[in-house]
Write a protein that binds this DNA or RNA. Sequence first.
DNA 1: GCGACAG
DNA 2: ATCTTGTCGC
Length: 240
Amino acid sequence: MPRPPLHNWNLKPEEAIALQHELAQHVVLEDHLGEVHHVAGVDMAINEEHNAARAAVVLMSYPELEIVERHVYEEPIRMPYVPGLLSFREAPCVIGAFEQLRQRPDIVMVDGQGIAHPRRIGIATHLGLWLEIPTIGCAKSLLTGKYDKEALGEEAGSWVPLIHRKETIGAVVRTRTKVNPMFISPGHLISLETSIRYVLACGKGYRLPEPTRQADKLSKDNAWTEPPDEPQGQQMSLWS
DNA sequence: GCGACAG
DNA sequence: ATCTTGTCGC
């Protein structure tokens, strides 16, 4: 399921920021969902020593949440981690893993922010725009915004809005009783309410929603090896 | 100018 | 992200 390239990924920080401002104009926060039968989760693992980045994608049936497909994709690390520019470091690798899917997910859960980002375009949003699939940002920590910590209940399912510049950009959700909350925000083609609903519906009693939790495990599973200098996989060879 | 800062 | 042992609480 290759997608037409939207833009180049190898940009200078200044150019990347300008691109984010442009792309953010096209984000859709209304639900564009049909029946949901498959939810995918993506995550990454990094190994500095081998200069390797590994993305993992796990496709699960919904609402059964049984694993349908698992894929990993590796390539050299391209960018350093810069707060606010995570997608330029990880998205290309995630897309590589995505190209291996036989089935197109109805929703994709990403480890990182959706619109809960200084320019409203975290990695989940960026991936949604590139893949043209509804995405949800499921981050383990805060990047931007504030919330009423006192108002957040400690029981699983409780949540409070995440605010930034007078704007609701996401929700701080307790996915498991008495455990640190998750920072949920819509990525693209989905609303915040629906995002929260699916994250909770994909919970299996752990802090992370099952799709992301499975992808996290898969990305850390195998041993590391030096990746080729050039990105591999059919999608790059077509338009690089 | 001084902090904060997804993974 | 990754490093890294034991330990507190349900």
